[in-house]
Lab assay of single mutants.
Amino acid sequence: TFYNFIMGFQNDNTPFGILAEHVSEDKAFPRLEERHQVIRAYVMSNYTDHQLIETTNRAISLYMANL
């Protein structure tokens, strides 16, 4: 899942690491979701930090390219 992918960046001092920290603390994050459209919609609806949203979009693109 995307959640498992992004958790691989925990403790990294990178934008993906920052995203992983936010996702791990977000109890409502769709952890079992595999459809990138649902993940993107969730982030757009629940996150207000523009940098975090952009990082999510980049992470989703990388995740999709590696499926």
Rank of each mutant, 00 (worst) to 15 (best):
R31V: 07
Y42R: 01
A59V: 07
H50V: 13
P30G: 01
T48H: 11
D12R: 14
N46G: 04
A20E: 03
H22W: 13
L67N: 11
N11H: 12
I60H: 01
A20C: 03
F16L: 10
D26S: 04
A28H: 14
F5G: 00
Y3S: 00
A20S: 05
F29G: 02
T55N: 04
P30M: 04
S61K: 13
R35N: 15
L52D: 04
N4I: 09
R40C: 12
S45I: 09
S24D: 07
D12A: 09
F29S: 13
P15C: 10
N66L: 15
G8N: 11
M44Q: 11
A65D: 11
L52S: 02
T1W: 05
H22K: 14
S24W: 08
P30W: 15
I6M: 07
A65Y: 10
E54D: 10
T48Q: 12
M7I: 08
F2E: 00
T48D: 12
E33A: 08
I53L: 10
N4Q: 14
E54V: 09
K27Q: 10
R35H: 09
Q37G: 09
R31H: 07
L52R: 01
T1R: 06
P15M: 11
T48N: 11
I18H: 10
Q10T: 09
T48L: 11
T55Q: 06
N46T: 13
I53G: 03
Y3P: 00
L52N: 02
E54Q: 08
A28P: 04
S61T: 12
P15S: 10
Q51F: 15
A20L: 04
F29T: 13
G17H: 04
N66C: 13
R40P: 01
L32E: 13
N66Q: 15
R35S: 13
Q10C: 14
H50E: 14
V38C: 12
Q37E: 15
F9H: 05
Q10R: 15
L32K: 11
R35I: 04
E54H: 09
I6E: 00
S45P: 01
Y42H: 04
R58W: 09
T48M: 08
N13E: 10
N57Q: 11
F2Y: 03
Q37H: 15
M7F: 03
T1F: 06
Y42L: 03
M7Q: 06
I60R: 00
T55G: 03
V23P: 11
S24H: 13
K27T: 11
Q51M: 13
D26P: 02
I18M: 11
V23S: 01
R35G: 07
Q51H: 11
Q10V: 14
A59E: 05
F9L: 04
P15T: 07
Y47P: 02
R31P: 02
H50D: 11
H36M: 14
Y42F: 03
F16A: 02
Y47T: 04
I53S: 03
S45G: 09
G17N: 04
Y47I: 04
N11S: 08
G17M: 05
E54P: 02
F29P: 02
I53Y: 05
S61N: 11
A41Y: 09
E33C: 06
T56H: 02
T1D: 05
Y47A: 01
I60Q: 01
Y3V: 02
I18V: 12
Q37A: 11
Q10I: 15
F2W: 04
Q51K: 13
N4D: 14
E25P: 01
M7P: 00
V23L: 10
R35P: 04
H22Y: 14
Q37W: 15
Q37D: 14
S61E: 14
N46R: 06
R58K: 12
R58L: 13
T56N: 03
S61Y: 11
P30V: 12
N11F: 11
L67P: 08
M64Q: 09
F29R: 15
G8C: 12
L19S: 01
L67M: 12
D12V: 07
I18Q: 12
P15F: 07
F9R: 01
T1P: 08
L19C: 02
L32V: 06
M44E: 14
L67G: 10
I6S: 00
G17F: 04
H36G: 14
T14S: 14
N66H: 15
M44W: 07
E25K: 15
D12Q: 14
R58C: 11
M64R: 09
I53N: 03
A28Q: 12
P30A: 03
E21R: 15
M44T: 10
V43L: 07
L19D: 01
Y47R: 01
T55C: 05
H22R: 11
T48V: 10
V43T: 04
M64E: 09
I18E: 10
Y47V: 04
T56W: 14
M64D: 04
T55I: 14
Q51W: 14
A65Q: 12
T1V: 05
N46H: 12
E54K: 08
L67F: 10
Q10K: 15
D49E: 07
E25H: 15
L32N: 13
H36Y: 13
A59S: 04
A20R: 06
I18T: 10
F29Q: 00
R40G: 05
K27H: 10
A28L: 13
M44F: 09
M44L: 12
N13I: 06
Q37M: 08
E21T: 14
G17Y: 04
L32R: 09
Y3L: 02
D26A: 01
R31I: 07
R35F: 06
M7G: 01
S45M: 12
T56Q: 02
E33W: 04
T55F: 08
S45R: 10
I6K: 00
V38K: 08
V23G: 03
A59C: 04
Y3Q: 00
E25L: 15
L19N: 03
R58P: 02
H36D: 07
I18P: 02
A41P: 00
A65R: 10
Y42S: 02
I60T: 01
L52C: 06
V23F: 12
Y63E: 00
S45N: 14
I39Q: 00
F16E: 02
D49K: 05
I18R: 14
L32W: 13
A59K: 03
H50G: 10
Q37N: 12
V38I: 11
L19I: 04
E33T: 06
Y47L: 03
T55M: 08
K27R: 10
S45T: 12
F2A: 00
L32M: 13
P30D: 03
L52V: 05
V43I: 09
S61L: 14
T56M: 15
T55S: 07
G17A: 10
V38S: 08
V23Q: 03
T55K: 01
N66I: 15
V38H: 07
I53R: 10
D49C: 07
T55D: 04
V23C: 04
H22S: 06
Y63A: 02
V43C: 06
R40K: 10
D49P: 04
E34F: 15
G8I: 07
G8Q: 15
T14P: 02
G17I: 06
A41E: 14
F29A: 03
T1N: 09
N13G: 13
N66K: 12
N66A: 15
N4K: 10
V23N: 02
E34K: 14
I18W: 12
T55H: 04
Y63N: 01
M64A: 10
I60A: 02
F2S: 03
